[in-house]
């Protein structure tokens, strides 16, 4: 009798839980209408948050999930809510850390009351947010390679990449970037590439899962190998990559400006000579 009394409300709750896959991109952000319902409902939130606390010890595994369910006061079978198993746990981490960026930015802006941070350019804020997001992996950094491997599984790759795109979109928007021409795409693509940066660091890493490195997060992977205090090497690595992109980006826009100017001058010279074009 006591058992049923304890279990019935929980079980009833479980039947009302609806598993919803990650929504598509979030078009048209409204300021007056209520925003979307949170990505995870109360049950999912409770179980996944508790499971995430188990990750440092048990890794991104089904074991963490069931421990989390138990800790949150649900039956072990609650794990069936998450058909993708450990990937749902990884995804929870990705989504919540992305959504936490706004608070981090607000906190930073509130911290320096002189308003110097608010006045900073978009570039500084992008760097701050990217670093902030990387540092959010800190508590579970020794388990992150498992997560990368899970994300690179064929059934999860598309979701992982979409989440990476949402992350870089979020960072640019929070940084206050208002560009809506073709640079909208290049900015997001280059930040995604930085975040999952390729290049020379591959050589320094001895990762167990090469496909994981290719697909999701070399910068993150770099961080998993980083032995320096306070991830100083990772910070330097990020600085170098952002600087590279800034140089390439300004080079491209200079070249575009130059070509545009030259073409216009050329046409105007021809027109002044009486050529009817």
């Amino acid at each position: 009798m006591p058992i049923t009394r304890v279990c019935t409300p929980r079980l009833r709750l479980l039947t009302s839980v609806r598993y919803c896959p990650i929504s598509r991109g979030r078009p048209y952000h409204s300021y007056e209408h209520e925003s979307d319902p949170p990505p995870f409902n109360a049950t999912e939130e409770a179980v996944l948050a508790a499971a995430l606390r188990q990750v440092p010890e048990h890794g991104f595994t089904d074991a963490s999930l069931s421990l989390g369910a138990r800790e949150a006061g649900y039956l072990d079978i609650t794990v069936n809510l998450f058909p993708r198993g450990s990937f749902d746990l990884v995804n929870y981490h990705l989504v919540t850390r992305r959504l936490a960026l706004k608070k981090a930015l607000d906190a930073q802006a509130a911290k320096d009351d002189g308003g110097s941070f608010k006045g900073q350019g978009v570039g500084t804020k992008v760097k701050f947010l990217t670093l902030e997001r990387l540092m959010a992996n800190r508590p579970i950094i020794h388990r992150w390679q498992e997560a990368l491997a899970i994300m690179a599984q064929p059934s999860c790759i598309s979701t992982s990449i979409a989440e990476l795109a949402r992350l870089s979109d979020e960072i640019w928007i929070l940084a206050g970037d208002a560009g809506v021409d073709s640079s909208w795409y290049t900015k997001r693509a280059s930040l995604s590439v930085i975040y999952s940066s390729t290049g020379e660091n591959l050589a320094h890493c001895t990762a167990p899962k090469p496909e994981a490195m290719l697909m999701s997060g070399l910068l993150e992977l770099f961080m998993t190998q980083d032995q320096s205090t306070d991830f100083a090497d990772t910070q330097k690595f990020l600085d170098r990559r952002l600087e590279d992109v800034r140089i390439v980006g300004s080079g491209i826009s200079n070249l575009k400006g130059y070509l545009d100017f030259t073409a216009h001058s050329f046409i105007n010279v021809l027109r002044s000579k009486g050529v009817r074009i």
Partner: peptide, 17 residues
């Protein structure tokens, strides 16, 4: 419209160029 796009987080057309 540029301001509206930036405000409401709408992506520009991919065929902009």
């Amino acid at each position: 419209f540029n301001a509206l796009l930036a405000k409401h987080r709408v992506r520009p057309s991919a065929l902009y160029p």
